[in-house]
Design a protein around this nucleic acid. Structure first.
Lengths: 248, 248
DNA sequence: GTGACTTTGTGCATGCGTTCACAAGTCACC
DNA sequence: GGTGACTTGTGAACGCATGCACAAAGTCAC
């Protein structure tokens, strides 16, 4: 049975996981761990060996109380009166997220965005290795992108099995996304990162996360509208209320 | 005074907005409106003129209760016993988000990702118009990308003023992002969409949203780790607990 | 060893978001 | 005009996330 992306992702029901899973880190915390990890990496490169929750929170863009509570879900990795060991904490978070192992990723859709993703260094530097590039466009197939050959779509299943790929990235046009998604899932992929502007339907046990620039822009536009000239774009009701207020 | 991206964005304190703003649509709802809008557009193209909350919820990947509550913040735009008028609702949401007006956008950083963004059709089809392409790389400057000429960075301020740009998109490497952000803000930009893997510091009144593929992948990896072989990657504590359970 | 100081870890309160369940309203059909 | 089927809009309950405030636990100077 298929369920919606939002239903599965939001509810944090990444089922298939042993219920109760470990110590049960809240979803909101999980989403911030990569942020902390990045801040810690920056600090480590700068030669910092110890950091307080205040400093780390500042670097990660959160409050120190939130940071401490987040970290407390992982364990007691700090030292009172001192702070956190940068390298130690970095390792703990890496392990928690699962970055100590290597993740093979399939990238489907080698258009402009696919090219950008294939060449993005941020993947490789974490434990993510793009193991397969796939496209349906005959003009793309066979071409070398970021050191890999673009394969035709019908090899998808074979590639996933051979490279033990668990994560798929969809960078196709919207109309092709659900089909690609279905094939990925059928071949055994259980985590999908979707760049196509579509809601994907997946069965239980498959996680979907989406990255949607158009939606982000629209959210910004909403707030922008309220800032400048809220008066320039009034709803009929607002206009009426304003008119009343002025008269009254 | 500078505040962190997360602090400002999460708290929904898009300050600068008249406090209380309109009827006060919750932030979580605002984030879903674009989803509904997209689903409605698809339905309209298919010739559907009326839709129930169940159907629309299915298409948008949310529950019908959530959808109805979300829409109720905008007003009573449905008809009991019937559903929602597709075109009417579409227009109402568009207006609420602010898509009835044209938004000029500046795109800074014309690398692989910048190219992909400049060519992305999803922007133009909504009310977003890329009005300026800016880069520091001399090799890029002067080139035509998606019909626009790439301008040098020192023209940033002038371009923003001339085109009345309120929204900036940052697609530079991480190390350049904060500098670009500062210049955008200084020139009057009050909404920023950040693709660089960095936490941006901005003053009150400026909204920042980030799109970070590396973080999304890490969140997927976390859940993936719990699914397959949770046994393959045990923490010391988990291993101990397991061992005990087996013995006991 | 002692006292002053620093910083973590956490119980508690608060607020936001989601879900449930149902009254109120609409339509079609007889 | 009345009846039954259907769907919205919303009050109320619940649960998750955040912020606050402080005890617990450590360091450092002397």
């Amino acid at each position: 049975m298929r369920r919606s992306q939002a239903a599965a992702a939001r509810a944090g029901e990444s089922s298939g996981a042993p219920s109760g899973g470990a110590r049960g880190v809240p979803e909101a915390t999980v989403a911030r761990l990569p942020l902390y990890l990045r801040a810690l990496t920056t600090l480590a490169e700068r030669g910092v060996s110890t950091v307080s929750s205040d400093q780390l929170a500042e670097a990660a863009g959160v409050t120190s109380a939130k940071l401490r509570k987040d970290l407390s879900y992982l364990g007691s990795y700090g030292t009172r009166g001192v702070g956190y060991g940068v390298d130690f904490l970095r390792h703990q978070i890496s392990r928690e997220i699962g970055l100590t192992q290597d993740w093979a990723v399939a990238l489907v859709g080698i258009g402009h965005l696919g090219h950008a993703l294939a060449n993005y260094a941020g993947f490789a530097s974490r434990g993510f290795r793009i193991a397969a590039l796939v496209d349906t466009d005959p003009a793309q197939i066979g071409k070398k992108v970021a050191g890999l050959t673009v394969e035709p779509a019908d090899r998808l299943e074979r590639l996933i099995k051979r490279h033990r790929i668990a994560i798929g990235v969809i960078a196709t046009p919207a109309r092709a996304a659900q089909g690609v998604c279905d094939r990925l899932v059928a071949a055994g992929v259980t985590s999908i990162l979707n760049f196509a502007p579509t809601v994907l339907q997946v069965p239980d046990g498959v996680d979907v996360r989406k990255v949607d620039m158009s939606i982000e822009l629209q959210i910004l536009a909403y707030h922008e509208q309220r800032k400048n000239g809220a008066a320039l774009a009034l709803t009929p009701e607002q206009a009426a209320t304003l008119a009343e207020a002025v008269r009254g």
